[in-house]
C-alpha cells in the first residue's frame, strides 16, 4: 500500500537518481551543476521524510502543543535543523561551482565539458 512515507521517500530517491543521471550524461557544465543540485534536493527530501512521524505536528510549542506533552505530539526536530544547515551549505557549494564554471568558460571560451583537454589523461 502506498503511504505518504513511501511517496516522499520515493520522490527523494527519484530526484537523486535523476541528478546522478544528469551528472554522468550532460556535457554542458551548467547542466552538470543542475544535476548536482537535484541530488542535493533529493537528499533533503529524504532526510525530512525520515524525521516525519505520522499524525504529528511541527515542532513548535504553542496553543496546539503543550510543553508537557510535546514529546508525544511533535515530529523529530533534529533532521529539520540538519536540513536547514544542509540547504545553506548546498547553496554555498552551488555558488562556488558556478564561479568555477564562469572561470572555466572564460578561459576556454566553451561550456562543453569535452573541450577541457586538461581534464583528460
Amino acid at each position: 500500500m502506498i503511504t505518504l512515507e513511501y511517496i516522499t521517500l520515493g520522490t527523494g530517491i527519484l530526484l537523486m537518481l535523476m541528478g546522478i543521471w544528469g551528472l554522468f550524461t550532460q556535457k554542458n557544465l551548467i547542466k552538470i551543476v543542475i544535476g548536482f543540485t537535484l541530488v542535493d534536493t533529493g537528499i533533503h527530501i529524504l532526510m525530512v521524510s525520515i524525521g516525519h512521524i505520522k499524525n504529528r505536528t511541527a515542532p513548535i510549542i504553542d496553543d496546539a502543543v503543550n510543553a508537557s506533552e510535546a514529546a508525544d505530539k511533535v515530529v523529530d526536530p533534529i533532521p529539520q535543523a540538519m536540513v536547514l544547515t544542509a540547504i545553506v551549505i548546498g547553496l554555498g557549494i552551488t555558488a562556488l561551482m558556478l564561479t568555477f564554471v564562469v572561470k572555466m568558460a572564460k578561459d576556454n571560451n566553451s561550456l562543453n565539458v569535452s573541450n577541457f583537454k586538461s581534464l583528460k589523461w
Binding site: E5, I53, K54, I60, P77, Q80
Partner: peptide, 28 residues
Amino acid sequence: YEVKQDLNPIASYYADQGLEETGAANLV
C-alpha cells in the same frame, strides 16, 4: 522502512526540555 511511532531519545529530550532550557517555542 518502518513508520516510526516515537521520537528517539535525544529528540524527545529536546522536545521535553528544549522549551525550558532555551525558552524558544520553535524547537528547530
